[in-house]
Each structure stands twice: as structure tokens, then as C-alpha cells.
């Protein structure tokens, strides 16, 4: 598949998915009601129908945009982490950010830490948790200023285990009713989406994708090998540090706003490589669009399969992602690390 076809096809799916997502939901609104709200806002004013206005513009649309941002973020972070550590099993959470964020989120949900920040407490404490985990992994993995892939993976896994133990400890000490909300958060949800939640993941993703696209060629060289990259004029030490920081921030912010949504960052990068090859100038933009589309479709299911209740999005992404992935791997010859 050529990159323009993959991009246009992905964008078409993304738009259709978004259009479907905005009309579907636990409160039944007619398509006419929904689109009149969208049309009104496109025309620069509010819709007259107050209930439809509230549901469509204040709940559904921010939620769809958040799903897009998080899907794109996790996919590009996964793509880059896989190249950084040259391992097919790597995902954006490998380097510890999700387990760090979980500690922060658990502390807020169970013990009301940072209560003075109100609605922002959860995001802020997860971001702090993710940053602490990131800096800890960075400090431990560094060897004479370098981040060697194997060491990075091992330190990430070890520290992640430690942070997860800390989360378990907090759960063990916490109030049993509140642990339910922690479990729900850990499995991921876009239920808390609002317009004011969007700028942070939006900014992180924009800065991240800009940096990564500038480095796309260097990233290709690094994926072939660190020594090759060095002899091609890439400052490998600095590139690895920056990739680590960018992917950790992009993934960490995603976790902070939506919880730990597994599998997307592992599987979608592989599906994208199957379709368009492994040149990062193609995989990054295609991954951005496909990851966003995948997540919006997943969220539609999360909101509808057990309506009026909501399924955690992490359950959906694994349920759909795993079989799709296995089918693709079995049908095509594909090589990345141990999958070779």
C-alpha cells in the first residue's frame, strides 16, 4: 500500500468513525438534532436545543477528539519506542511511564491527594507520576551518558514493577469502594473528556510529531543499527535521549488524561508497517491517522456494547487488536525482531 493511499483511506475511516461516534450514545438524539448542533458551531454560534447542545458539544465531541489524540499519541510513541530499543515487543509503556502515572492516579483516587486542584488533581498527579518514573528510568539506565537499548528495557521493566508494587500497596491500604474507580481508571476511559482536557495531549502530540518527523531519516538509520547511524553522521547519544523524552512525555500525557489503554501502541505500529513498510517518514503520519481511527472505533464500541454502562476502552482495544494482529501476522511475511 502506498503512503498516500494509506493516509487517505485512514482519514476517510477516521471521519466516518467520528461521524458515527457523534450520533451514537446512551442518550438517543436524532441525527437531525446532532448535526444541527455541529452546524451551529461551525457557523460560530450555539445551538438552540440546550440538551442536544450539552450532549453533543460538551460531551461527545471533546470525547471523540480526545480518543483521536490518545490513539495517535500511543501509536507514534509505540512506533518510536520499538525502533529505539529495536524490539518488536516494545510498547509506549515499556519504559515505565504508565506505572508511574498509575501511582499518581491511585494516590488521588484513594487518598484525595492534591484535592485543592479539584478536577485537575487526577491529571496533574498522573503526569507527575509519569515524569518521576521517566526520570528514574533515565537516571538508572544511563551509562556514561548513553542510553543503551538493552539496559533501557531492563531498567524500564524493573522500575515499572516497582511502581506497580507501589500501586498495589496503595490499593491494599485503600478503601474497597474507591478501588473500583482505580480499576476503571487503570483500564482506560475517555469518560472524563472535556474541552479543557484537550490542549495538553494536543500540545504534546503536536510537538512530538513535529520533532519526530524532522528526525524521521535519522530514526530509520537508528533502526538499522546504532553504529550505522553514527557513521552516517547521526549523533546517536543525543537522538536516543530526545526520543526517550519525547515518547515518554507523549505517552505519559495520554495516560494522564485517559488511563492505561493497552495494546494500541503495540499493535497499530506493526499493522502500519505491514501496510506501508518501515520508513518512519511514512509510518509516523500513517500511524497517527490509523491510531486515531482505531481508538475512535474502539470508543464507539466501549460506549455501545453494554449501554447504558460503559466498557473500559482497554478491554475493547485488546479484544479487537489481538485477533486482527494475529490474523495479519499469519497471512503476511513480516519481520521485526523476534517476529522474524
Amino acid at each position: 500500500m502506498s503512503a498516500p493511499v494509506a493516509l487517505m483511506g485512514g482519514s476517510a475511516v477516521l471521519l466516518l468513525a467520528a461521524a458515527a461516534a457523534v450520533t451514537l450514545g446512551s442518550v438517543r438524539l436524532s441525527p437531525g438534532q446532532v448535526w444541527s448542533v455541529v452546524a451551529a458551531h461551525l457557523g460560530g454560534h450555539r445551538a438552540g436545543d440546550v440538551i442536544a447542545e450539552q450532549i453533543v458539544w460538551q460531551i461527545r465531541i471533546p470525547r471523540i477528539i480526545l480518543a483521536m489524540l490518545v490513539g495517535g499519541s500511543l501509536t507514534i510513541a509505540g512506533t518510536v519506542v520499538q525502533a529505539l530499543v529495536r524490539n518488536a515487543l516494545a510498547d509506549p509503556f515499556l519504559l515505565g511511564v504508565s506505572s508511574g502515572a498509575s501511582v499518581g492516579a491511585t494516590a488521588v483516587l484513594l487518598f484525595g491527594v492534591l484535592a485543592s486542584f479539584g478536577l485537575w488533581a487526577l491529571s496533574i498527579s498522573s503526569i507527575i507520576g509519569a515524569l518521576v518514573a521517566m526520570l528514574a528510568v533515565f537516571a538508572v539506565a544511563r551509562e556514561s551518558g548513553q542510553l543503551a537499548p538493552t539496559r533501557l528495557v531492563l531498567c524500564g521493566v524493573a522500575l515499572a514493577a516497582m511502581f506497580e508494587a507501589l500501586t498495589s500497596f496503595l490499593l491494599f491500604r485503600g478503601n474497597p469502594q474507591a478501588t473500583q474507580s482505580v480499576l476503571f481508571w487503570l483500564l482506560g476511559s475517555f469518560g472524563r473528556a472535556s474541552w479543557s482536557h484537550l490542549w495538553l495531549p494536543g500540545a504534546a502530540l503536536t510537538i512530538g510529531i513535529c520533532y519526530l518527523m524532522v528526525q524521521a531519516r535519522a530514526l530509520n538509520a537508528l533502526a538499522v543499527g546504532a553504529e550505522t547511524a553514527t557513521t552516517l553522521g547521526v549523533d546517536v547519544g543525543r537522538l536516543r535521549r530526545n526520543l526517550f523524552l519525547v515518547t515518554s512525555v507523549v505517552a505519559g500525557v495520554s495516560v494522564a488524561v485517559s488511563g492505561v489503554i493497552g495494546f494500541v501502541g503495540l499493535v497499530v505500529p506493526h499493522i502500519v508497517r505491514l501496510a506501508v513498510g518501515s520508513d518512519h517518514r511514512r509510518t509516523l503520519p500513517v500511524g497517527l491517522v490509523w491510531g486515531a481511527a482505531f481508538m475512535v472505533l474502539g470508543d464507539i464500541l466501549a460506549r455501545t456494547v453494554v449501554a447504558p454502562q460503559e466498557m473500559p476502552i482497554g478491554v475493547i482495544t485488546a479484544f479487537i487488536g489481538a485477533p486482527v494482529f494475529v490474523l495479519l501476522i499469519r497471512r503476511r511475511t513480516y519481520r521485526y525482531g523476534s517476529l522474524g
Partner: peptide, 21 residues
């Protein structure tokens, strides 16, 4: 460790001559 065509592999040699993006 992953699929790369011969042409893309050889194109990597242009890296020190190319502008970033």
C-alpha cells in the same frame, strides 16, 4: 531486524547530505 528494501537501505547513505525534513 525489520523489512527494509535494498533501495531504502542504500538511500540511508544520503543522510549526511540531506536536510532534516
Amino acid at each position: 531486524e525489520f523489512d527494509i528494501t535494498v533501495r531504502d537501505m542504500v538511500m540511508l547513505g544520503r543522510l549526511p547530505h540531506q536536510r532534516a525534513y
